[in-house]
Design a protein around this nucleic acid. Structure first.
Lengths: 152, 152
DNA sequence: GGTGAAATCCTCGGGGG
DNA sequence: CCCCCGAGGATTTCACC
């Protein structure tokens, strides 16, 4: 899959603001509205653009506490791993979960209201999942950068 | 700031698919198109919905390697910190950067093509920044969960 | 890749509970 | 305050060049 300079710029623009009209995009790209339309449809059909979403300001919905949890499983049999991953996926507080290399098996990004809510999450939700060996949590002090945009 | 059941469902829907028409949303919410329109505008004006973006499939743009880098600074004087944060923000490979508690100062999420590109990034880009003491990298083996949607 | 037109949608004034 | 209707103007979408 290959992208010319126009596609790259189009992807760049849509990753920053997907609400622009094709007309606005056509001006920025020096193309006709239809050409923009067809390029976007192509990117969507190719799966390059997977979806369009609204981003919510977490502070405005009273979710200001971010924690990163390292997790090590006690056992690594296939069915334990599958079960753990399924249950973690079902936790709404867990925004991201990665199987990673290193001393721990998983890295989770957890979003809750405050420290008290995090304590509650750890005690009543996360550690209710079986086969969790050890955990190690770090708290976010400040979000320096957070983008969903990939440079192509 | 408070959200009724309709707002919550609306936020939920827009975080999953922001390309739905107000008509589609009005059906799902049992409201008129205008009511949906006004609720969305209110959420935008309040800053609850901060923006609309297109999400790109990283594999499709040949960026399949994700690494998490812990970084410790050698010094923590205000101007060193500010400078580090500024330079890290300017690195396109760094999608996320958090100032965190614990043994390290920062946690970075880095996206590149492959291990070789990551090595290149570490040697020629990241460690070119001054005042970096130690780093510790973990590689993503599998992305179990990754959502931009917050439950309100 | 462009043009033009139909279908659809966004947007807002006006009005009701 | 929140909702609905209706209409004008903008936008998306597609057949055709």
């Amino acid at each position: 899959m290959t992208f010319d300079a126009i596609d790259q710029k189009l992807i760049h623009l849509l990753q920053r603001d997907s609400k622009q009209t094709n007309k606005e995009l056509s001006n920025k790209l020096n193309l006709s509205v239809t050409a923009v339309y067809e390029r976007i449809k192509k990117l969507e059909n190719q799966g390059v653009i997977s979806r369009y979403v609204a981003l919510v300001n977490k502070e405005k919905v009273d979710k200001s506490f971010v924690a990163f949890c390292h997790i090590k499983l006690t056992q690594h049999a296939q069915d334990y791993v599958v079960k753990f991953e399924k249950e973690v996926t079902n936790l709404q507080e867990v925004l991201e979960c990665y199987h990673i290399s290193g001393d721990y098996d998983y890295l989770l990004k957890v979003l809750v209201k405050d420290m008290e809510a995090f304590r509650e999450f750890m005690v009543n939700r996360l550690t209710k999942i079986n086969h969790i060996g050890s955990t190690h949590s770090m708290f976010m002090i400040n979000e320096v950068k957070h983008t969903t945009a990939i440079t192509v």
